[in-house]
């Protein structure tokens, strides 16, 4: 009963009409996530992982299934400011594109203050909170006066994380947040996320195509293929003893010692044949 997130039978199809079922993006997907836990959602492009992320935060409405935060089922009909602010506290999201995910007009300070004001932090407390947020994402306070175009990709992503944390959400959804970053910056952001989870107790849903990256920050992994969860389990089990041939193929695809592209291509062809039967 201590689950922060409970997802049951989630389904979404696009362009569905009365005659055709449309393109199924997510099909019968369920999972649980405990407090301060981190789950990774892995899949290739078109696997439905981004649709899942958008449904979790409420940007896309599912066709069927339920999403529960802390025992409260998400209601789509609910409107009004109180409901909006409550939902904001349930879950926040950080996006892939560090260039587009910040309002280019606002300085870091104005952006953070804006979030805090919206969530009724009075202005005297806001200063202390802003300093605390900047510190927690590892940004120097001199950057408060900067606008997004003056920041590097990694710094922007840190600002986006700070903005999400300012709401004090129970869950943070991270959609490919390190894909656009250099490896050294990626490593820093991954370390930052682990640190934030330990300190604030926020639960993480980490969406990525990169199994090795997901392995760094999560306790469990959900592997998606064509909208369905083909494998789900503790991170170390999934990475060390994959049960599903698709997971196995994904693991073999990542370049590393002994990797040969020809071998991966063969595996993929074999998988496609086996799956279509």
């Amino acid at each position: 009963m201590n689950d922060v997130v409970r997802v049951d039978g989630l389904r979404k199809a696009f362009d569905a009409t009365r005659r055709s079922p449309g393109i199924v993006a997510v099909e019968n997907l369920s999972f649980r996530l405990g407090k301060a836990d981190a789950i990774g959602v892995v899949g290739e492009s078109g696997s439905g992982k981004s649709t899942l992320a958008r449904m979790l935060v409420g940007l896309t409405r599912p066709d069927a299934g339920t999403i529960e935060f802390d025992g409260r089922v998400r209601e789509w009909r609910e409107r009004g400011r109180v409901a909006r602010l409550r939902r904001a506290k349930e879950v926040q999201m950080v996006f892939q594109d560090p260039y587009g995910s910040l309002d280019r007009r606002l300085t870091v300070e104005v952006a953070l203050r804006d979030v805090l004001r919206r969530h009724q932090v009075d202005s005297s407390a806001a200063d202390a909170r802003i300093a605390e947020l900047m510190d927690s994402v590892g940004l120097e306070s001199r950057l408060l006066a900067s606008r997004p175009h003056q920041l590097s990709g990694g710094q922007r992503q840190r600002v986006a994380i700070a903005k999400a944390l300012a709401v004090e959400p129970a869950v943070l959804v991270l959609d490919e947040v390190t894909s656009a970053l250099d490896v050294s910056v990626q490593a820093q952001i991954l370390a930052l996320l682990t640190d934030i989870r330990a300190r604030t107790g926020v639960s993480l849903i980490f969406v990525s195509h990169d199994l090795a990256v997901v392995g760094k920050v999560t306790d469990s992994i959900l592997v998606m293929y064509r909208g369905q969860a083909v494998e789900q389990g503790p991170t170390s089990d999934v990475l060390r003893r994959p049960q599903h041939p698709y997971t196995e193929m994904l693991l073999s695809s990542a370049p590393g010692p002994g990797w040969r592209p020809e071998r991966v291509a063969e595996l993929r062809a074999a998988f496609a044949v086996a799956h279509d039967q």
């Binding site: 290739e44 250099d182 490896v183 195509h209 990169d210 193929m249 994904l250 695809s253 990542a254 370049p255 590393g256 990797w259 040969r260 592209p261 020809e262 991966v264 291509a265 993929r268």
Partner: peptide, 30 residues
């Protein structure tokens, strides 16, 4: 990653066949 491997396998095959030189620019050290 899987598509990448396929494209690279293909590129290598074509390269061998044609004795082509390839300068492969990437951020991925692995």
């Amino acid at each position: 990653v899987t598509t990448q491997a396929e494209v690279l396998a293909l590129l290598r095959r074509l390269q061998r066949k044609r004795e082509m030189g390839v300068l492969f620019i990437t951020h991925d050290l692995h």
